[in-house]
Simulated assay, not measured.
Amino acid sequence: MSDPGSGQPYRRPTAFRLDDSRLEIAEEPAYEEIEDLAPGIDDAKGAVEQIANPRRRGFRWGALVLSAAGALVSLAIGLGVDALIRDLFQRAPWLGWVGLVALSLFVLGLVVVIGRELAGIARLKRVARLRLACDEAAASNDRDLAIAATRSVMDLYSARPETAKARADVRNYLREIMDGRDLLVLAERDLVAPLDARARAMISGSARRVSVVTAVSPRAFLDIIYVLWESVRLIRRVSSLYGGRPGAIGMLRLLRAVLGHLAVTGTIAVGDTILQQVLGHGLAGRISSKLGEGVVNGLMTARIGLSAMDVCRPLPFLAAERPRLKDLAGNLVSRE
């Protein structure tokens, strides 16, 4: 006989004795220690490689089409501007000179914008290559490589007055006889650890803002827009903190690396399970669904921030404790 509702075989009620040796009682799966859902750092090297040494693709017909179209549009714009300047001079000489000044300012601004974009890409590559050099020096425990990497880290933050004492201390360490990894650990403690504290505050603040705004937002598309905006803003701030400071094009490359890192390490599952794992089964059952959505969005933002921290940091996590997602989760529901 089967249950018509479920299609499963029907079993009659049966009585069992508790001391029956054949009886097996399935235990309720207990919630053990909260699993850290933050992205791992083992795969951060691949994301950093994308920034330091982007893969060059071969010949592509799509790129040829876009390049040719861009050249034609540029020629059309150039001819149109030339005709405009000539017409202005024919109407009145002073109008022609005004047009020339406006064109000169436009060209100057364009050159400055292009220069800033190239400088932003160069800064990103510099930090990424420094990270790879520190990874190699720490893995091989090579003192010479560690000294060169440490000097590069000091040069990276040489323009920041707040790091003057830390740079002086690290400069003294270079004269000591120690292993390469130990030298990098000291550089991490004095130079990078204070930046880690500021990055953690940035991530926590962004996660809390996202949690609050999306919890009170009346529309889902507003939640998506705000989460995207805050995530991009957080990645830019974290990168600037560690010395990257990307431009628009560099930001696209950085976003690709961070999202690639998240894709490798796994994404957050949105739903009741994440709330139960991070906040606890009892608290997750008592909060409203809208507040739960806000907490989940905040956790997603925090996870993106931690991934950006892994990618933008000039040194790997050697002795410093890496921020954990479950530590940031408590701030999302605190009353402070």
Rank of each mutant, 00 (worst) to 15 (best):
G305H: 05
A166S: 14
S21E: 12
L318F: 12
L195A: 04
R335W: 06
L84Q: 03
L291H: 10
M202V: 07
L275H: 14
A102P: 01
D169G: 06
T265M: 00
R167D: 04
V113M: 07
T214E: 11
G5Y: 12
D155R: 10
P323C: 02
E162S: 10
E27A: 14
S206K: 02
L328P: 00
L118E: 02
A122L: 10
L108W: 10
P54Q: 07
I41P: 00
F221R: 13
S21Y: 01
S231P: 00
A47T: 03
R123H: 13
A168G: 04
A47G: 09
L186Y: 12
V101D: 06
V127G: 08
D82S: 09
R116G: 06
A248T: 10
D272N: 15
L332H: 04
R237C: 01
A44F: 00
G247A: 05
A187I: 08
G244M: 13
S334H: 02
W61K: 12
E162H: 06
A320H: 01
G109P: 00
S334P: 00
K290D: 14
D87P: 00
G294R: 05
L241D: 07
G78T: 12
G294I: 06
E336H: 11
V258G: 05
L191W: 03
G298D: 05
L254H: 03
A168H: 05
D144K: 06
V213M: 11
P54R: 04
L75M: 11
V210H: 01
M251F: 14
R335D: 04
V232L: 05
V112N: 05
V107C: 08
Q90A: 15
G205E: 09
L279Y: 05
A308P: 06
G99Y: 01
D82Q: 12
R143Y: 06
D82K: 13
Y173M: 10
E136D: 13
I225G: 15
Q50G: 04
G70Y: 10
E35H: 09
Y31M: 12
G40R: 04
K45A: 15
G5Q: 14
L241C: 09
A319C: 07
G250S: 09
E35K: 08
I25R: 11
A139R: 14
N141P: 07
D42S: 12
G285T: 10
I304W: 00
I268E: 08
G285E: 15
R56T: 11
M178W: 11
I274G: 04
L100R: 14
